[in-house]
Design a protein around this nucleic acid. Structure first.
Lengths: 247, 247
DNA sequence: AAGTGGTCTAGACCACGAC
DNA sequence: TCGTGGTCTAGACCACTTA
């Protein structure tokens, strides 16, 4: 069933055609018609279905590709992005060792509880104070040593029934969210500062209280731009650096 | 004089045409034929001169625009990017106040000397140990308070005769480099960590030695991808945050 | 009114991947 | 071999800026 992009009646939507195409395609992905890993119709097929030229479809697909919503490969086709440990880390894990190389990371879940949103969590997640949330505490081992203590808060309305067992957890959180809860994280905002280690963090990392740590507050958003997670990471930067490229 | 993009003899350059166009245009900008602020020929003119279609020129220009080398405006034309305090800050100054708003910043030059490159400086700048460099120390006031102490090292071969007087300095360093030394910074890499304040920094910021500070090491590259500056910034994050977007 | 970049089309050919 | 996305062309019309 072709989507009516340009009805006979005068078009009030003044946005460029390729923006509208982009939104239609994104809608199908967000709505679950095309789940992660699904192969999209070919460009000529999409063009015919939507009643636009292949060039317009291409421009829309290029935008979605830049936002990592889809992946295109010559000869193979276009698929909805699927998180895996590589892409999840490349996009959302900025730590490198002192030589600039990627880091081997292991994750230990300390605890996972249900709770109510504190004011700062509610503000970050765009929900109301007291709304149900899940709390997750994790320790990350970088190259074998405990270097990061993370306190994560997830909006329970977006990931109902969330829960992971304590102990080592091999999977990246965002891969797990996609596979187990059908929630795809697409972007995040981080605010960085320096702080002395608090008691809980100091114990988790085996450092004295007050040790200077890199504190990262992250808010993660899904494909539909909903805030899913707010996370406070306390990072021991003795042997690692948080890498940023400005261009 | 048209540039021969596709000679009669078989073309060995297998790169796409638009990449070659991109390189030609970038070459004219780097070479100084088109200085910052200069208006480029129109797309049809470039297409005719280079012997390609306007669509190919457009794709090359789009790439350069994404890299902030040029700026395009409908009806007005395309110009070579010129640093000003707005763009310089938007790209290279990541600090926000606790509400996420931009910050009013003043710069005080503490000292400016000539010197020889230490090993770590030489490694960062891609020069040899002992090569001539300029050292610059600055204090930044954010919203009126001293919050950042910066130690900058510039490669003297790229900015010969560099020098700024001590005291307040209204201009952004990269704007000054472009206007006074014809060097345009286009991108930078930053490595972030947490560290206790050393004696020099503690005095500059009026904080006790050992106060946790955000330490940022930046390497700045010009349009020709040469390392121009390495900078160590010590930042008091009591009332400010370093903002990063991951997408 | 003239000229610029922005959008959109229709069609050609090529490089790559899967069968 | 076939279908995919990648490149390239030629030309139309539109929206914006400047004069």
């Amino acid at each position: 069933m072709p989507t009516a992009l340009r009805p006979a009646s005068p078009q009030l939507d003044a946005r460029p055609l390729y923006r509208q195409v982009e939104e239609i395609l994104l809608g199908r992905i967000v709505g679950g018609d095309w789940p992660p890993g699904h192969a999209l119709p070919s460009e000529p097929e999409l063009a015919a279905e939507l009643g636009v030229s292949q060039g317009t479809v291409r421009k829309a697909l290029t935008e979605l590709e830049l936002r990592h919503v889809i992946e295109r490969r010559q000869g193979r086709g276009t698929t909805v992005s699927r998180h895996n440990s590589e892409t999840a880390r490349r996009h959302f894990f900025r730590l490198r060792d002192l030589s600039g190389s990627a880091v081997i990371s292991r994750i230990i879940v300390v605890s996972c509880d249900e709770g109510r949103a504190e004011p700062w969590e509610a503000a970050a997640l765009g929900i109301r104070e007291g709304d149900p949330v899940h709390h997750l505490r994790r320790i990350r081992l970088l190259d074998g040593s405990p270097r990061i203590f993370e306190r994560c808060t997830l909006s329970a309305t977006l990931v109902p029934g969330f829960g992971v067992p304590p102990g080592e957890f091999a999977q990246e959180l965002y891969v797990y969210l996609q596979q187990a809860h059908n929630v795809t994280i697409r972007r995040a905002e981080e605010d960085l500062s320096a702080a002395g280690a608090d008691a809980e963090t100091a114990e988790a990392l085996g450092k004295p209280v007050g040790t200077p740590l890199l504190m990262v507050q992250r808010i993660a958003y899904d494909v539909a731009n909903r805030a899913v997670e707010v996370r406070l990471s306390m990072i021991d930067t003795e042997r690692h650096r948080y890498a940023v490229r400005l261009d």
